[in-house]
């Protein structure tokens, strides 16, 4: 619920620092896996952590616990939007926020890109993926099919080069 600007930092603080349910290394390892697998990252994280403590039931419980509150809030906002979206000030606010939102998403990408500077050959994967998705407008399934073999080969080399 208090996940303004992303739930991850908050999840880490609660689970690792406050409740000491997981060590910092365990948290990072789980997070690493959740970012490998497709799908909503935070739901993946909830599944991993929930299932460690309560199997499938724990996974379902932690996903519900994490999502139901925010879903209620966002639906409340949606109702407000229906009533007030005709106002110029509301339109302006949303235009401003969406421009910032795109910037935030791009920054996540650029920050991760910075980590690849250690092994610049990985940039090829990034460029191929961007070209396939944005220039050739291939479907996401095709993009993943084309890029992943290349990604695996280069990642294998990168892992060996360290």
């Amino acid at each position: 619920m208090s996940g303004f600007g992303g739930v991850l930092p908050w999840a880490r603080r609660t689970l690792v620092e406050r409740d000491k349910i997981l060590t910092s290394e365990e948290f990072s390892a789980i997070l690493g896996i959740c970012q490998i697998v497709p799908g909503p990252n935070i739901v993946n994280l909830a599944v991993c952590i929930g299932s460690r403590f309560g199997g499938a039931r724990g996974a379902v419980a932690s996903v519900l616990g994490l999502t139901l509150g925010p879903i209620s809030i966002v639906l409340l906002l949606a109702v407000l939007y229906e009533h007030y979206s005709y106002l110029d000030s509301v339109k302006g606010v949303l235009r401003g926020i969406s421009a910032v939102g795109v910037g935030l998403i791009a920054s996540t990408g650029f920050k991760m890109l910075k980590d690849e500077l250690r092994y610049p050959a990985m940039f090829i994967v990034v460029i191929v993926t961007i070209l396939a998705a944005s220039y050739f407008h291939l479907g996401l399934g095709w993009v993943v099919l084309i890029s992943s073999p290349l990604a695996l080969v280069l990642a294998w080399k990168k892992a060996h080069s360290e």
Partner: peptide
């Protein structure tokens, strides 16, 4: 090494997809 390879490959794929998403949106 295998573990790292999988992780690196997924990260590179994710970077490409996130950046093209930001651009198209």
């Amino acid at each position: 090494l295998k573990k790292k390879s999988i992780q690196y490959a997924a990260a590179a794929l994710a970077i490409g997809l996130v950046l093209s998403s930001a651009w198209q949106i």
